[in-house]
Design a protein around this nucleic acid. Structure first.
Length: 1147
RNA sequence: GGGCCUGUAGCUCAGUCGGUUAGAGCACCGUGCUGAUAACGCGGGGGUCCGUGGUUCGAGUCCACGCAGGCCCA
């Protein structure tokens, strides 16, 4: 964002405020319409299709959403840089109980009755308005994250929300991508996301709802839609059934209830009773039977309280109070058929249903003795398994609760009471009747409502289901076509086979779910959601039902109420007005009042958002998605499931080619984030305190299958490890380039944004003016390697494979290339090393401009800031944004480059060893030494010889020499090659190892090097012959010689200090202190100075002798010895025991 | 209750086909380097590789059983 007219780099501070910079970049993108321009640039490119898993527009977005959204943005940007065109449509999930619950809270409603009194039309408007409000909020947050998507203007969404509540029927005109659109507010809202309005898709849109109707009609036509009566988990607060999909998602909580043991007196016997256990006392009102395990062992005991009890033998010690005596042992089988008096036989409803007559003992294989008494209370109207068992035995099924959890009429004193409030009164009542045995607290995982947390009850209800079809008891590959045709379950599995799952275990999870899942319950007795298009004949003797496939069919079939519905979106209450004629009996048909399961809304989007109903050619262009990405937990049975199931029904095709999943976000303390635990971090806070580039890098550097521990400590670490070094490498370059007035020559000025403009390749990035060194060639080879690795990582959708090569490259760049190259940038202009300096500039410029492109998809802000200065400020015709550039490409590494990479690794190892020796001898690097000695094999020697100057420099030695006779530096160790000799000698192997260790190593090595075998005499007297290939010779540093070794390289240093070396070392001590003073004085890098010193003894000699060196190194025009040194800065201390005073002054 | 995964340094995690002295980052201590760095280098302390048993010349790695935690399903 240069403002100067003549091209030049802007100065760069190393103290940049990254967060402020992010806001400036956001402004820049907005001002320059960067995203719109990118879309223009990529128009006509090959398609990369992404379908967004819709985010629930119900609350501000969290840092866990930011995780997924960073990935979505990253891969969009990556493919755009590869030249692909994408659709960029964000999605909002809009309908369902989660929105209703929030609106209820806001309105202070606590029951469905209050909603109905308020009016469905108003309630639905409130739900729509809430969705629009939070969609606006989430859009703003996503923009802050740097996410580039096609969304609506947040202000427009907020305005629609207000207008909607004002008067949904008022007509407005808004601008769309194809021109102005005029319609009622309600219809504009219903058309959001369609081509004429653009922006995010909303699952409450007309198109989304009607496409689901189309889906449901197909289901119905194939005979898979049915109404079932069953005992279902039910939330008494929300007054709705909870489907299996929902109950397993966050659906259990550790709760402590009071478990009760009750006497069921046996009829016709005196004070003999079954002991029956339950954790849900409210269900005792509806007890019908008692179940025993036919093969379990039971006992009849005489207890101290005068009763005789029956219970499972294994349970007796923990169940029975006080002393007891076992009178008889019997199998459960023996008790089957006994009848007993139920605990609430006096209730009128129980009487009416013939329950007392039905009471008896049944056999049931599910009965166990781990809990309770081994005799299970059966209430067919209150439990799913109980209902099944009751059906098998033809038992009545009293259902005691209404939809809000109150006892219905006919339950005596309980009628009208709330299910979760009656436990104690029931205990009291049982006590009075003399049948309460004991009550104990019992902690178990109990299902709760996933929205409001209310413990669920089980109710006998009518719901609508999609049949998943039979599960056949044979392997899938043996299924016939006919069997598959009859079972949606297996059709879905076939589709799942065609999808690539990342990580791979996703496939198994999805399959596991499909094998086990029950029919999909799609109805909900609520208000805000998909209006299920099921119309039922009102004539009770007919009951025929039909599914309507779209709005046109509805209009054709409507015989009543169309005028009430017309002009409205297909939501309650208006759509409920439409009546049809029953084709069977001629009666009137009404829509069932239920709304749909919200996963229907999200599952249809690969059809509804791609114009499946209206423009099949367009749909074919973008279907299936290339990639979708969501957090794993829950999605196997929710979005992934519904998406795949619905696509299977629609077209029997996979909705996406790749599913990428990632784990759960936790707080840094390893626990889930929880408002009440104080460990939650809000997105807005994270963005403004960490910066979103930091967040995005943190997300990238995270294995998909592990939970992400998110917090400020980790963010600081991430910033320090990656963003700051990146920024400083860039700042280093710019600040020296400014000093030298360096600008990139022509071949380096190419940053194409379209393929036809050509690619600069990295094989020879230097002009004729540059004389690249091995170091330059090395970092370019590393860059090529990094391009290859990051590209492969991105193509495979594995984030750590993108982050890891980038981090390792930056480390090499910062801590080796730049550190070793610094001096090359200092030299003055026009000297004989101009070509070397030019090479350094060209290399670093190429590396930095290429590297920021590789990083741009992940950390879009800092890379944009760097690009604007490195490229746009000096190459005005370059693409306007780094995000408009094409992805770097490089030819494969050449043989020479591979060799160079190996060689540099050897040098760095040798340098490490040299530093280690210095540290061991307390020899500062500042102190020059005469030579380093290296003992190594011929291959490493060849490698090191290419780069000796570099190594000498790094170790501050005058020479590096190789020693032929290693024995001085090294001792040998002989080790057996386990892999070979282990199997060869088997049991004798330890003896071989021992014998080998006992040899004279030097002598044995000499023989081996001559190619002769070794003959060993083992401890058991036998002999073993080892060929040279079977022995590993390990050289290790000889103790006490100042050597260090590793990986086949041994380094020693000549630690003798000659007077010359010592004086040079002292001179360097002086230089170091002058540099420190320069820094303290805050001089510019180019400022010339005068150095004034007072020194004595050795030091004086050293200064006199190395005066020129000191002057050159510190940019001093003069190095003067004075009695009282004065200047801008001054220090007094000792060097090697000699006092010294140094002052510097700027010229 | 069943299935899958995990258990390695204070913390977060690598550890290939079973093989030689079990590693990294963070944190801590010492020390060096520093005319880009909030960095970086070198060194140090810190290990019952969850436990028990087994297979094997050899087990962090394979097997069995158990313990603890996570996920999925009942």
């Amino acid at each position: 964002m240069s403002t100067s007219s003549s091209p030049a780099f802007e100065p760069v501070s190393t103290q940049t405020d990254f967060i402020r910079q992010e806001h400036e970049i956001l402004d820049f993108w907005k001002r320059s319409r960067a995203f719109e321009k990118l879309r223009q640039l990529r128009k006509g490119g090959p398609h990369w299709s992404f379908i967004d898993g819709p985010i629930t527009a119900n609350n501000p977005m969290g840092v866990h959403h930011a995780w997924g959204r960073s990935y979505k943005d990253l891969w969009h940007r990556f493919w755009a840089m590869r030249g692909y065109e994408a659709r960029y449509q964000n999605g909002f999930d809009c309908q369902g109980l989660w929105v209703e619950v929030e609106v209820e809270k806001a309105k202070g409603f606590t029951s469905k009755r209050e909603i109905e009194a308020y009016g469905l039309a108003n309630f639905v408007l409130d739900c729509k308005a809430r969705v629009l409000t939070y969609a606006a909020r989430q859009t703003e947050q996503s923009i802050r994250l740097g996410y580039w998507m096609d969304w609506n203007d947040p202000d427009l969404l907020r305005e629609l929300a207000e207008r909607l509540k004002e008067d949904p029927q008022q007509t407005i005109t808004i601008d769309g991508p194809m021109g102005p659109v005029t319609d009622s507010v309600e219809q504009i809202v219903g058309r959001l996301g369609l081509p004429e309005l653009g922006g995010s898709y909303f699952t409450f849109s007309n198109e989304n709802n009607y496409t689901i109707w189309t889906f449901l009609k197909k289901v119905w036509e194939r005979g898979w839609l049915y109404k079932g009566t069953d005992v279902m988990p039910w939330c008494p607060r929300c007054a709705t059934g909870i489907s299996q999909h929902e109950i397993v998602t966050d659906g259990y909580r550790e709760l402590t209830h009071e478990a009760v043991i009750v006497r069921f007196p046996l009829r016709g016997r005196d004070r003999e009773a079954l002991l029956v256990w339950t954790t849900t006392p409210w269900t005792l009102t509806s007890n019908v039977a008692a179940a025993v395990g036919a093969d379990l062992d039971y006992v009849k005991v005489k207890a101290a309280d005068g009763w005789t009890y029956y219970l499972a033998e294994a349970t007796a010690p923990r169940v029975l109070k006080g002393k007891y005596e076992v009178v008889e042992r019997l199998k459960g089988e023996a008790m089957v058929g006994w009848s007993y008096d139920g605990p609430f036989d006096e209730l009128p409803r129980i009487h009416e249903m013939g329950v007392p007559e039905a009471h008896r003992v049944l056999p049931w294989e599910e009965v166990g003795e781990e809990e309770g008494t081994g005799i299970v209370h059966i209430a067919p109207g209150c439990g799913a398994e109980d209902f099944q068992l009751g059906k098998e035995h033809g038992l009545p099924a009293p259902a005691p609760l209404d939809d809000e959890g109150h006892y219905i009429d006919g339950f005596g004193w309980l009628t009208g009471r709330y299910v979760h409030d009656v436990a104690h009164d029931i205990f009291h009542n049982l006590e009075e009747k003399g049948i309460l045995y004991r009550v104990d607290p019992y902690t178990h995982r109990y299902p709760v409502c996933w929205r409001c947390g209310t413990p669920l009850v089980f109710r006998l209800v009518d719901e609508w289901f999609i049949s998943m079809g039979p599960t056949y008891d044979k392997p899938r590959e043996e299924l016939t076509e006919a069997e598959k045709e009859a079972s949606l379950r297996y059709q879905i599995m076939d589709v799942v086979d065609e999808i690539k799952w990342i990580p791979e275990f996703g496939y198994d999870r999805e399959m596991d779910w499909l094998r086990n899942m029950h029919d999909w319950m799609i109805s909900k007795k609520r208000y805000w959601g998909l209006a299920l298009p099921i119309w039922v004949c009102e004539n009770p003797s007919c009951g025929h039902h039909e599914v309507i496939g779209d709005e046109h069919e509805l209009r054709e079939r409507a015989v009543e109420g169309w005028e009430t519905f017309e002009g409205h979106t297909p939501h309650r209450p208006y759509v409920d007005a439409v009546k049809l004629r029953c084709p069977k009996c001629g009666g009137l048909m009404s829509r069932i009042p239920d709304v749909g399961n919200p996963w229907l809304d999200a599952g249809i989007v690969t059809y509804s958002t791609l114009q499946y109903r209206t423009n099949r050619a367009y749909w074919e262009q973008w279907f299936p998605a290339d990639w979708i990405s969501e957090s794993f937990p829950g999605q196997f049975r929710n979005w992934f499931y519904s998406l795949i199931t619905m696509s299977t029904v629609m077209e029997r095709r996979p909705p996406t080619k790749i599913v990428q999943g990632y784990s759960t976000l936790w707080a840094e303390d390893g626990r889930p984030m929880h408002k009440s635990w104080g460990n939650a971090i809000w997105f807005d806070d994270a963005a403004e305190k960490m910066g979103v580039d930091t967040m995005r890098w943190l997300y990238l550097n995270q294995p998909l299958d592990q939970n992400l521990l998110f917090g400020y400590t980790r963010a600081d670490e991430t910033r320090r490890r990656f963003l700051i070094p990146l920024w400083n490498a860039y700042a280093f370059f710019v600040n020296y380039a400014r000093i030298d007035g360096w600008l990139p020559p022509e071949p380096l000025r190419r940053h194409p944004s379209r393929r036809e403009e050509g690619f600069p390749r990295l094989d020879a990035p230097w002009t004729a003016e540059a004389a690249p060194t091995e170091l330059d060639r090395w970092i370019v080879a590393r860059l090529k390697e990094t391009i290859e690795a990051m590209t492969a990582g991105l193509e495979s959708y594995v984030p750590v494979r993108v982050a890891q090569p980038a981090e390792s490259f930056l480390d090499d760049l910062s801590n080796w290339y730049i550190r070793r190259s610094r001096r090359r940038f200092w030299s003055a202009k026009g000297e004989e090393n101009a070509a070397d300096k030019e090479a350094a500039y060209q290399t670093l410029y190429t590396v930095l401009t290429t590297f920021v492109k590789l990083l741009a998809p992940t950390i879009p802000f800092i890379t944009e800031a760097i690009y604007q200065n490195l490229v746009r400020a000096v190459v005005p015709d370059a693409p306007e944004s780094v995000h408009h550039c094409l992805w770097p490409e490089a030819a494969p590494l050449t043989e020479a480059e591979r060799d160079l990479l190996e060689a540099m690794a050897a040098v760095r190892l040798a340098a490490r060893l040299g530093h280690s020796v210095r540290a061991g001898h307390n020899l500062k690097v500042r102190q020059p030494l005469a030579k380093a000695l290296i003992a190594t094999d011929p291959r490493h020697r060849r490698e090191l010889e290419q780069l000796l100057g570099l190594l000498a420099d790094e170790l501050n030695v005058k020479a590096v020499e190789f020693v032929e006779e290693e024995g001085d530096l090294v001792t040998y160790r002989l080790l057996p090659l386990n892999r070979v000799l282990g199997p060869k000698f088997g049991r004798r192997f330890p003896l071989v190892r021992k014998a080998l260790a006992g040899l004279d190593a030097a002598e044995a090595v000499a023989r081996l090097q001559a190619g002769e075998p070794l003959t060993l005499t083992l401890a058991d007297g036998s002999e073993a012959v080892l060929s040279p290939e079977e022995v590993l010779v390990q050289s290790q540093p000889r103790e006490g010689y100042g050597v260090a070794g590793e990986g086949g390289i041994v380094v020693a240093l000549d630690t003798q200090l000659t007077p010359d070396l010592r004086q040079e070392g002292l001179a360097r001590e002086v230089i170091r202190r002058v540099q420190a003073l320069r820094k303290e004085a805050d001089y510019e890098l180019t400022d010339r100075i005068v150095v004034r010193l007072r020194v004595e003894g050795d030091l004086a000699e050293a200064v006199a002798r190395f005066r020129d060196l000191i002057a050159a190194e510190t940019l001093a025009e003069a190095v003067e010895e004075v009695a009282e040194p004065q200047g801008d800065r001054r220090l007094e201390e000792q060097i090697a025991g000699t006092p010294v005073v140094i002052a510097v002054e700027r010229r």
